[in-house]
Amino acid sequence: MKRKKWNFTPLQIAAHLGSLIPLAFILWDIATGNFGVDPIRDFTLRTGKTALVLLLLSLACTPVNTLFKFKQVLKLRRPLGLYSFFYASIHFAIFIGVDYYFDFTLIQSALLEKRYAIVGLTTGLILLALAVTSTIGWQRRLKKNWKKLHKLTYLAGILAVVHYIWLVKQGVLDPWYFAAILLLLLTLRIPAIRKAITTKRART
């Protein structure tokens, strides 16, 4: 794949703009002082949720192509994944710097002893590895292994949802909606199902 000159499809532009809108809202709310009763929790949740949504959208590209033969979306996987990493980084930075105020004794006990935090941190590290190796240079360097490495996106998606589920109290349903969507997306990737869809589409 050779790098072409700047040539964005409208879909790509929409993806970039769409990914930046949550950030714009956050900055706007900070600038205008429009936060809830617990702003730290508010912004932590918002950045975390945005990261999760973008990660799921990135994971949705391939199934969308399988279902609708819409190749353009495949180009969105990288930017959506990178934006997801971007929001996850802010999410983590708020946690360390604002919520825990760099109090490393507390951070250590909160981050390394609690399963939701361990899972969240793992997700972040996976996203970091994927972001670093997302360039064409790394793609060339890693050759076949690149694809293998980037299959970790599935794992990141699963861990991100688990992170959310373990954070909330029992009976709080929000993370389960994400879990349902993720499950659907992963189901569509099962080779047998994928094949069935492609053959059915070829016939009609």
């Binding site: 009763v37 617990d38 730290i40 929790r41 604002v98 919520d99 825990y100 105020y101 109090d103 507390l106 006990s109 909160a110 002893e113 609690k114 399963r115 939701y116 373990w166 954070l167 029992q170």
Partner: peptide
């Protein structure tokens, strides 16, 4: 996760999160 007594106790963590510190609503630092 939740006992009958549920006394506030910074030394006994909720199994899923720490109880050592808290955020007072309206304050930034824990």
């Amino acid at each position: 996760e939740y006992g009958f007594y549920a006394n506030v106790n910074p030394g006994v963590d909720h199994p899923r999160w720490s109880q050592a510190s808290e955020r007072r609503i309206g304050e930034l630092k824990r």
